[in-house]
Design a protein around this nucleic acid. Sequence first.
DNA 1: TCTGATCCATTCATTTATGAATATTCAGTC
DNA 2: GACTGAATATTCATAAATGAATGGATCAGA
Lengths: 294, 294
Amino acid sequence: MDQNLSNLDWSLIRAFLAVAEEGSLSGAARRLRASQPTLGRQVKAIEDALSAKLFARHARGLALTDMGEAILPAARMMAAAMNEIRLTAAQQETEVTGTVRITSSVNVSHALLPRVLAEARRTYPGIQLELVPNDDSENLLYGESDIAVRMYRPTQNDLVTKFVGDFEIGLYGAKRYLDKKGRPSNIDEIMALDLVGYDADERIIAGLARYGLTVDRLAFMTRCDEPLTQWQLIREGCGVGFAPCIVGDADPLVERIPLPVDVPGLPMWLTTSKAMRHTPRIRAIWEIMSRELA
Amino acid sequence: MDQNLSNLDWSLIRAFLAVAEEGSLSGAARRLRASQPTLGRQVKAIEDALSAKLFARHARGLALTDMGEAILPAARMMAAAMNEIRLTAAQQETEVTGTVRITSSVNVSHALLPRVLAEARRTYPGIQLELVPNDDSENLLYGESDIAVRMYRPTQNDLVTKFVGDFEIGLYGAKRYLDKKGRPSNIDEIMALDLVGYDADERIIAGLARYGLTVDRLAFMTRCDEPLTQWQLIREGCGVGFAPCIVGDADPLVERIPLPVDVPGLPMWLTTSKAMRHTPRIRAIWEIMSRELA
DNA sequence: TCTGATCCATTCATTTATGAATATTCAGTC
DNA sequence: GACTGAATATTCATAAATGAATGGATCAGA
């Protein structure tokens, strides 16, 4: 309302940028960990202040107008400067304290990281840890997290990556279920079983396709997007599905189903930004994760 | 407290920059039109988020630490980007509407601008005007105001200036006062009168010094920093003092005291930033001020 | 045409930030 | 050494921003 060109809150530009890049208020809200109404109001505040429409409201989200496109480069420059501030501040740190934010897939977070992070906590009690189990890939460059475990090698320029090992995946079924349905001895018998899974298995499906096993979404008789719940479904006998070997092999309720083709493990790449690489707290956690995940 | 490196409010950087440049919380508060406690809290919030001291608290204000110096360039870059956004937005304007913010000295604001701005309002009813009477020189480049009337020619690079005329100044005294004390006929008699004035007369004093008339602060028997109140003091007979001729000549209570030397008028320079020069609303007000002040 | 999903706008109770007033600190000056 | 002036901290009542819940609109797919 009484927002004026001269005293436009800088943080509104952050909101603008998030909405522009995500393409929706809801998406931007998720990225900034705010709510959708908040982002909506902030966008309106910027538009009032600049007295120009920056977005065209669309049913599927918000699209930039010419005016929005015009200020986008400067907004990006602000984000870059802000990031510069963060990096500068981090580089001046000398103590092994602070918070390290780690992103990784839900499965890795659940199956591998707890042990690793417990070790990290014991070694560096001064470092607070934040674990974000998330199957999408957040952007490390904007400081949204410090270290990521990725199942592919990131190619961006300002990142450093290190291969730490394979994340073994196997096909499992509940003993009770297999007792009833019979243990499959060839590929056709496997395909005849009830499959449990969904989106998160995309990479596995892609891998299988390379060996001539085509599976589409409808092949899954039980579908669940949440990997941990999916695993419970398998354990209780809804059908068979893929899971980390480290989880499956340790569970007395299930057993591994031998596959005719050799499904390779998913490569795990430890990732951080070059600029943060040498800050004490990041380096400390990096070393532990690198050693313990190997 | 729970402020984290990754979700540091961008507007806090604006606060940091203002405090760094002004050298005090109070100064920064004035610049940003906020309060001193607010700035204090915001600075603390940044320091918490970066977990580093950015300022050394001093009795005379806050001085940057090494850490603060380190992030200053990036903060300036953010400010530049923010300014870029403002300029881009302004340049896309096509309508003669919006707000124009004008800065000028208290005397000029009081004596000349009301008539000029009234004319502007009549001509462009869609433009809202904001007048900031202020004897210090605010920075036009950071968008704190759009047009300034300066008593000197600004030399900064990205500004455009135009000489619009002289602001005539004369020495005045209340008739009642002069009846009692007698009308001075030479410089010594003038100096024997009670002088009313203070800081704001600096430029006049400097001008007089060039003619061999040295006056120091203690020569003013009645002192007041507020030019308008100062004028009331003169009108009521506290003594004689300098005032704009346009005010003094129109007031029946006072009369002008002829000076043996010719005190030149103060040159008035209309100033705006190059980038804003061609936006419709600025151009419109500029033209009117340029014509009416001549 | 209908259904499900996704997104934006609005409302209202709650949390958070703000500023006026006041106390406190500190360097410079007589 | 006390005083002055200009600054920073603190307190508390008020104003502003936030988010959960809800309603409404639009598009994709059956």
